[in-house]
Design a protein around this nucleic acid. Structure first.
Length: 914
RNA sequence: GCGCGAGUGGUGAAAUGGCAUACACGCCAGACUUAGGAUCUGGUCCGAAAGGGUGGGGGUUCAAGUCCCCCCUCGCGCACCA
């Protein structure tokens, strides 16, 4: 690469300060009870013998350390949080700003399968590379709190929390998780075995034999959330349904609270909406239909439109519904239309039709089921049910447009007022009865909104909400239905057939599971040479016979936890990362997460990360936090008070960055050419944090030039030239030469002029407000405006420049430290010394912003015509008189009647004429 | 289909209902220079001007990029959820 002339010696400066920060633990956060170190800059700012200042917890979503290293998208959020961390430190807060590694997971394991290298080795290499890259950007993390989810000292507590969950149940009376010991047994349960079965069925972590998402290529099951369009989210491999014994976490019990508590937190509307969608609450009624047969089986359906019950002309069960086999008669009822008996050729009996359809439905992958061309298919079961409102017989069908996993797996079909039912009814020539009349007298068939009930006997004339309420009460009275709330959210499938994850602290004895004692944690995975999944679905851990089989004949659980487990609580471990007695001390938790006096909020004050975690990590972490809250382990119900999603950074071609497109920008390259400060500035200068925006290397040059201008304002030209010359002779002298640099003679320890004070106070105001509002791009532009103005001052007062550096410091810390050090040497009453990171944030004073003259734009009928200059303090009448007499205004007033003159103080004058 | 964002110069983007385009990139010209891919200075929405301009159309207002209604385009999320 051709060496172009550097704007300033950023390489020397950045290495120097990163070393100093590291050596002095400059950015260490202090826990309550921790012995103060009077030599640390934090304690030079804050009184040693007083309580800690309020906390500010600013958190990044910790990365998965992949082999590819960082790309410029990662540090976008990290830069934003670092700026705030530094800003709040300057504002006097005790700032917790940690970093760690989410290092369990598939890629390391797959690499291990390919190369035989242990995932721990791969992981360590990747972590080292990530740490090096992150450190090179100069983030002010407290590295003493670094965590790694694969560290036994970390996952010991992941397993410990799992045991907490395992040993709890959800008490619907209190709406809370409680220790399993508070569970009361129904009196009819006598034996220990019965009680155990009951207890195990109530645990928040339970074992279920259920159809799960099995991915043959990955050799593991996946949570619903990890399956996208019938393919694995990781790798895009096909996923099939397969019944397996799996660990589940009872997140559904918390659905209501997960939904309600969204109100209490400061997240974007869009993100909350995504979580609401995922939880998918819907209010309606359960209605019980009886099958018209000897046994009179009951079919429960869920509907959000009980008011349309009179329009229910058939029923549909999911193909997998357990009643399907029981209700079908031996022969087709008389008069059954041929098309009801099966699509290709009519089946001879209902049983045959059902069997054939079930084979078809199973063969359809989830991918096919969700395809856009959703042509409805289904078959008549031969059975009829009785509509409870009017005792009419309605045919019972099976069809795969009804999902077994939602509601009761059965519906009442109201073709007149449901698009899907209508489509189905039209295909199979089923009866369509309109029961809701739209207000505008339009055709009721296909009308799905609220209207007025018709053809519905006692509901006729009622509005939809009235009718819903009326019929629900009626159903309850007749004991054939009740008001119900349904959720889309399913329990969380928590086990994986993988090697590289946390083993469950569970053993199996005589077919029952038991928890290990917490004292034996961490339970470490066995050493293995073969990490491959097995085709049967048996986890790789099962191969480690020595590990699995225990002397007393019991065996270990061989599943491992999903990658999400470690990230469900990592923000708590940072609070007290080295604690070997507890996952986190009560004191630390109370201080950092609780209601500490003057703290800006409880929980994590600001959490920044990608939107891809909107429903996975963020929902799981909230769920675990609520359990810990119920069990008294944490002091508040929500972990993340404010959450912001950074926008994606695209490649220079405005396409998503990817290896295959060849448009990935590596921060290492940018840092080498422009330095960390320029990199940080550009990451923020591109545009608003939450917007999608393309990378543009030319843009880095812009902010880089700005830093060069800052440098040249401070440092004398001669000494810059001298350093450059000396550097070419002996590069090892760089640090020394940096010390030798002199300030420019224009920089003097003198009183500032009112103009200069105005300039800096305007900047203080703007930067403060912009950082509060996370508007980093406009904060940077305000600093640029200041420099563009200051560059023309003949004499630059040191006090003004120091305030500027205090403002620049959060954004471009290295150059700010270096220049502040030089500046302080010439200041008589040097306000402080040492690192600028703990200098008091400057306060702006309105009195410096007062203008002696104000310029008013004069509009006539909203069009700009002239401008006048008025002394500040002129009355509205005086301004109005001057405006009406303004030279360029007069021609537009000629021959017109002045209707109104609007004078907005400090803003504008508008003259309305006709 | 439903939900949420966003549409402003050649480009990234600014603008508590109050002078549209701050700041930066790019481009043009000039200065310094053997040189410029360094630096500094000036210019840069369209139009000769009057004027016209914030995706399109309506509205509210003394005043609309900003508020209200309708429509178009792009991005993201959800998607047979009864």
């Amino acid at each position: 690469m051709a060496t172009i002339k550097k704007q300033y010696p950023f390489d020397v400066i950045e290495a120097k300060w990163q070393h100093i920060w590291e050596k002095n633990n400059t950015f260490q956060a202090w826990n309550p009870g921790q012995a103060p170190d009077p030599s640390h800059p934090f304690w030079q700012r804050h009184a040693v013998n007083e309580p800690l200042p309020p906390k500010y917890y600013v958190l990044d979503m910790f990365p998965y350390p992949s082999g590819a290293g960082l790309h410029v998208g990662h540090p976008e959020g990290y830069t934003a949080t670092d700026i705030l961390a530094r800003y709040y430190r300057a504002r006097g807060y005790n700032v917790l700003h940690p970093m760690g590694w989410d290092a369990f997971g598939l890629p390391a394991e797959q690499y291990a399968i390919k190369t035989g290298q242990h995932p721990r080795v791969t992981t360590e290499n990747n972590v080292n590379n990530f740490r090096r890259q992150i450190k090179s950007i100069g983030f002010s993390y407290d590295w003493t709190r670094e965590i790694n989810t694969t560290d036994p000292e970390y996952f010991k507590w992941t397993q410990w929390i799992f045991l907490k969950i395992y040993n709890s149940w959800f008490n619907p009376e209190t709406n809370k998780a409680e220790p399993i010991s508070t569970l009361e047994y129904p009196t009819e349960l006598k034996t220990d075995a019965e009680k155990r079965t009951y207890r195990d069925s109530k645990r928040l972590a339970y074992v279920a034999e259920a159809p799960v998402n099995w991915c043959p290529q990955l050799g593991t099951v996946l949570a619903n959330e990890e399956v996208v369009d019938g393919k694995s989210e990781v790798g895009g491999f096909p996923v099939i349904r397969k019944p397996m014994r799996q660990w589940m976490l009872r997140i559904t019990a918390f659905a209501e609270r997960l939904l309600d508590d969204l109100e209490s937190i400061d997240w974007s509307h869009a993100l909350k909406e995504m979580q609401r969608n995922w939880i998918g609450r819907s209010e309606g009624a359960e209605v019980v239909f009886s099958v018209d047969s000897e046994n009179q089986e009951k079919i429960k359906v869920f509907t959000t439109r009980p008011d349309t019950l009179f329009g229910a002309t058939y029923m549909v069960l999911a193909p997998e519904h357990p009643l399907v086999g029981k209700i079908a008669p031996e022969v087709w009822p008389e008069g059954t239309p041929e098309i009801w008996k099966g699509e290709e050729k009519p089946a001879a009996t209902p049983a045959e039709a059902i069997a054939r359809y079930r084979v078809y439905a199973e063969s359809r992958s989830d991918l096919e089921r969700t395809e856009l061309s959703k042509v409805k298919t289904g078959v008549f079961t031969g059975a009829y049910a009785i509509n409870p409102v009017n005792s009419k017989r309605v045919p019972i069908w099976i069809a795969d447009y009804v999902l077994s996993s939602y509601g009761t797996g059965a519906i009442m079909a109201v073709p007149a007022h449901d698009t899907r039912d209508l489509e189905f009814a039209q295909k199979f020539e089923l009866l369509v009865i309109p029961v809701v009349q739209p207000e505008n007298q339009a055709d009721p068939i296909g009308f799905v909104d609220d209207g007025i009930s018709i053809n519905s006997e006692f509901l006729n004339g009622k509005s939809t909400p009235e009718a819903k309420k009326f019929i629900t009460d009626w159903l309850e009275e007749k004991q054939c239905g009740k008001k119900t709330i349904n959720y889309k959210l399913r329990d969380w499938l928590f086990s994986r057939q993988r090697y590289w994850g946390e083993p469950f602290p569970i053993i199996w004895k005589d077919g029952h599971h038991e928890s290990l004692d917490k004292d034996v944690l961490p339970l470490i995975p066995p050493q293995m040479t073969d990490y491959k999944p097995t085709e049967s679905g048996e986890p790789p851990l099962a191969r480690a016979a020595d590990w699995v089989n225990l002397p007393d004949g019991s065996v270990r659980e061989t599943n491992t936890m999903p990658q999400w487990a470690g990230s469900c609580w990592y923000y708590l471990r940072y609070l007290d990362a080295g604690n070997s007695k507890e996952f986190c001390s009560k004191e630390a938790e109370n201080y950092w997460m609780g209601l500490y006096p003057k703290a800006k909020s409880t929980g994590v004050n600001l959490y920044v990360g990608g939107a891809e975690h909107a429903v996975l990590h963020l929902l799981y972490a909230r769920f675990w936090h609520k359990i810990l809250f119920d069990l008294g382990e944490v002091s508040t119900p929500e972990p993340f008070h404010r959450l912001v999603n950074q926008g994606l950074i695209l490649g220079e071609d405005s396409q998503k960055m990817s290896k295959s497109r060849g448009n990935v920008v590596n921060p290492d390259d940018v840092l080498k050419e422009y330095g960390a400060d320029a990199f940080r500035l550009y990451e923020m200068f591109m545009g608003p944090l939450d917007m999608v925006k393309p990378w543009n290397t030319k843009g880095v040059e812009g902010v880089y030039r700005f830093l060069g201008r800052v440098w040249r304002i401070f440092i004398s030209e001669e000494s810059i030239t001298q350093m450059e010359q000396n550097l070419t002779m002996d590069i090892t002298q760089a640090d020394h030469l940096l010390e030798e640099l002199n300030l420019s003679p224009d920089v003097q320890d003198v009183e500032a002029t009112p103009e200069q004070l105005k300039a800096i106070h305007r900047t203080i105001k703007k930067v403060t407000e912009d950082l509060d509002g996370l508007r980093f791009n406009t904060a940077i532009s305000a600093l640029m405006v200041f420099i563009n103005e200051a560059i023309s001052w003949e004499v630059k007062p040191a006090s003004i420049l120091l305030d500027f550096l205090k403002l620049l410091q959060p954004l471009a810390p290295h150059i700010s430290e270096e220049l502040a050090g030089k500046l302080l040497k010439i200041m008589k009453d040097s306000p402080a010394s040492g690192t600028i990171a703990y200098f008091q944030w400057p306060q702006f004073d309105e009195k410096h912003l007062v203008e002696s003259f104000l310029e008013y734009p004069i509009q006539v009928n909203g069009k700009l015509r002239d401008k006048i200059t008025v002394s500040n303090g002129a009355s509205l009448q005086e301004i109005q008189d001057l405006a009406l007499a303004a030279e360029k205004v007069l021609p537009f007033l000629e021959g017109k009647t002045i209707k109104k003159v609007i004078v907005i103080p400090n803003k504008i004058v508008n003259i309305a004429v006709v």
